[in-house]
């Protein structure tokens, strides 16, 4: 990562930690692009894996572990270490799947091609949320409401929406780590 890029991303992340949502979105989009490029080149040859899964798991981890970044430290090595960790994790889970699949090898050869993992871990992970968390997460992510809008639509306090959002994202990240197929 170029020093200018790093400085800009660090600036965005600092703003984000002070509550600047647009800055956080810009930061996450740039990080997503960087991780996507790396994941595509590393995971390209791994069948049944979608680089976008790595992108999403990395973004979730960055959010849930943002307190491990120190504001005076460069942001590039931090992002790369998290992305690498998530990629290794994906390889490990994939390895597990492959050993399971060996017994079904003939069957999967005869059957149709295995479905592509289109960020489906995340889709399934949504299913493990409580109703309240799912309502909040989908109001904000799928329907594009702000926290304030989601709060008034769902008849909740803004703070309760923030808490449900945080818990929902944490639950999604946990579920991805567990399912891993």
């Amino acid at each position: 990562m170029l020093p200018e890029t790093d400085a800009r991303l660090a600036g965005l992340l600092r703003q984000a930690l002070r509550g600047d949502e647009p800055a956080y979105a810009r930061f996450l989009q740039e990080v997503a692009a960087i991780v996507r490029a790396v994941a595509r080149s590393r995971l390209g040859q791994l069948p049944g894996s979608d680089p976008e899964d790595i992108v999403q798991e990395t973004l979730l981890a960055i959010h849930l572990k943002r307190h491990t970044w120190r504001e005076d430290a460069p942001v590039g090595p931090w992002v790369h270490a998290i992305a690498r960790y998530k990629m290794v994790d994906a390889f490990r889970r994939q390895g597990r799947v492959v050993t399971v699949d060996i017994e079904d090898f003939a069957e999967s050869l005869a059957g149709e091609e295995a479905p592509v993992m289109h960020a489906r871990d995340l889709e399934r992970a949504l299913g493990c949320l409580t109703d309240g968390q799912r309502q909040v997460v989908s109001a904000i992510s799928l329907e594009g409401h702000s926290v304030a809008e989601a709060a008034s639509r769902l008849g909740m306090k803004e703070n309760a929406v923030r808490v449900a959002l945080h818990r929902g994202l944490a639950a999604i990240a946990r579920a991805i780590g567990k399912t891993g197929t």
Binding site: L17, E21, Y24, A32, L122, S141, S146, V147, A150, R162
Partner: peptide, 9 residues
Amino acid sequence: LIRAISAGA
């Protein structure tokens, strides 16, 4: 996902 996460800034 980015929309959901950035709402948690």
